[in-house]
């Protein structure tokens, strides 16, 4: 992995920090939720990713407004659409 999210922050004092690169290393093979800027969620097992936040996922489920819309065995998600990558466990509520 190089470029993009692999960079380190400017200032010092980062020895205890968890940088984006650390996070990306720690979540391979784990269940994740990927949220896109459009609001669509993808839940699945993270196979791999690169510095552009391009993502390969397995057992992917597509949720639109919290409703399951599609399933994909494998899915490639283009990084520019990604809002965040989250480890799972989430609760929803409207207010």
């Amino acid at each position: 992995m190089d470029g993009g999210a692999g960079g380190n922050a400017g200032g010092g004092g980062l020895s205890t920090a968890k940088t984006p690169a650390d996070f990306l290393k720690s979540i391979r093979g784990r269940p994740v939720v990927v949220k896109l800027n459009s609001g669509v969620d993808y839940r699945g097992i993270l196979a791999c990713l690169d510095g552009y936040m391009n993502i390969a996922m397995e057992q992917t489920e597509e949720y639109v407004n919290g409703q399951l819309k599609n399933k994909y065995g494998d899915a490639f998600i283009r990084g520019n659409n990604v809002l965040y990558i989250s480890t799972t466990k989430r609760t929803l509520g409207d207010q």
Binding site: G73, D74, A75
Partner: peptide, 11 residues
Amino acid sequence: DGVILVSPPLR
């Protein structure tokens, strides 16, 4: 740049 997701055939 228009691509959101690509899914290969089920393997």
